[in-house]
Design a binder for these strands. Sequence first.
DNA 1: CGACATATTGAGATCCATCAACCAATGTGG
DNA 2: CCACATTGGTTGATGGATCTCAATATGTCG
Lengths: 191, 191
Amino acid sequence: MENDIVKLISRFLTLTEKESTAFIECIPIISFEKGTILLKEGQISRDSYFVIEGCVRKYYIIDGEERTTEFYVEDESLASLQSYTNKTPSNHYFECVEDCKLAVLNYDKEQELFERVPKYEALCRMSMENDFGEQQEALAKFITSSPEERYKNLLETRPDLLQRVPQYHLASYLGVKPESLSRIRKRLTKR
Amino acid sequence: MENDIVKLISRFLTLTEKESTAFIECIPIISFEKGTILLKEGQISRDSYFVIEGCVRKYYIIDGEERTTEFYVEDESLASLQSYTNKTPSNHYFECVEDCKLAVLNYDKEQELFERVPKYEALCRMSMENDFGEQQEALAKFITSSPEERYKNLLETRPDLLQRVPQYHLASYLGVKPESLSRIRKRLTKR
DNA sequence: CGACATATTGAGATCCATCAACCAATGTGG
DNA sequence: CCACATTGGTTGATGGATCTCAATATGTCG
C-alpha cells in the first residue's frame, strides 16, 4: 500500500499495514488552484493542512486592507487553531498564492486517527511543539527588529519567498507599505 | 491525597489515586523571589513552568539591550520550546518580575508522566494547541498594528500588566523606547 | 496593442529614536 | 533628620524612517 501521505508520515513513524490504511482513509491529498480561498473570515475552520507543494498565505482584513501575517510553503503545516480546535469563527483568511497540493486533515477524521493510531497523538504533539517553538522565535524576531532588519532577515532565511510572492504581500508581511519596501530594497542595493 | 498540582490538573482530567501520585511525584511547586533568573541565554532549558502565582518575563539581549517579548501570569505556561525539546542552548532569558509560585516540569519527568499517565499526552497536546493558537493571534496583532494601537490593545486585554510591570519593560514589549511610550500615554490621555 | 496589476519615485506630514535634561519617589549613610 | 545617589518616568529638540497621496514607470496577460 503506497501513497503520498504514507510516505510523509513514514518519515516520522513506522507504520503497520493497518495504520497506513487509517492514514490513507483519513487524510486525502487535494490540489487547489492559485487564488483558491481555503478559509474565509467568519467561517469555522474544519480542516488543517500540510503543504506538499505550493504556497499558502494567511491574511487579515483590517480597515479594508489585507494584512499578511504568514506564508506556508513545502513541508509546513497550517491551521487556524483558534477556529479549528474551539469551533469559533475564524478572524482571518487562507489563500493559495500558487497552485497547491495539500494534505487535508479534517477535524473529525483527526479524532478518528487518534483512536486508530494512538502513536499519532505523540507525533502530533511533537510537531506542534516544533511549530510553536518556531513561531515563538518569529514573534521575538519581529518585536526586536526594524522593517529593514526584517527584510534582511527574510533575504537570508527565506530567499525563495522573494521569488514566489509578489512584493506588496511581502511588504505587508514585513509590516510596511509597498512603497517603503521598495525604498528599503533600493537603499540596500546601493551599498 | 491533596495538593496544588493535583487540583490544577483535575480542572482538565479526572485522576485515579495512582495518577495523582504520579503528578505529585513529577511536578513540584516551587517559590522564586522577584528577580530570579529562571533561564539564561546559552543554557539548555531542562524545565518548563506553569505560573500558579506571580509574573515571569521573557527577554532577549540584543546589542546590549534587553528586549522583552512576553509576560506570563497566573494560569499561563512558559517554556523555551526550542531549547527544551531539542536540547539546544537558549537564546533568551526568563526572569521573575514578581515573587512567583511556579509548577516546575522537568523534561525527563515529563517523559515519565507520558508513560505513567497516558491521557496526559492528549491534555498536553490540547494545551499546546491552545497556547499556540493564542500565540498566532499575538503575532498577527503585532504585525498588523502600530505601537500606539498595541498599547491601546494592551490596555483592553491585559490592564493588569500596567500595574504589575514597570513601564520600561512594557515599552520594550510594545517595540518602542520608554520615552516614546511615555509620549503615547500622554497623547491618549489628552483625548 | 491595450488594460490592468505591480513596482518605483517624489514631496510633505507624522511618528519614533536619540540624546540630554529634569523631576519625583525611594533608599542610604552620616 | 538631612544631603546624596539611584531608579523610574517625563519633557524638549533634532534627525531619520515610514506613511500618505499622487504621479509615473514597468510588467503581464488576454
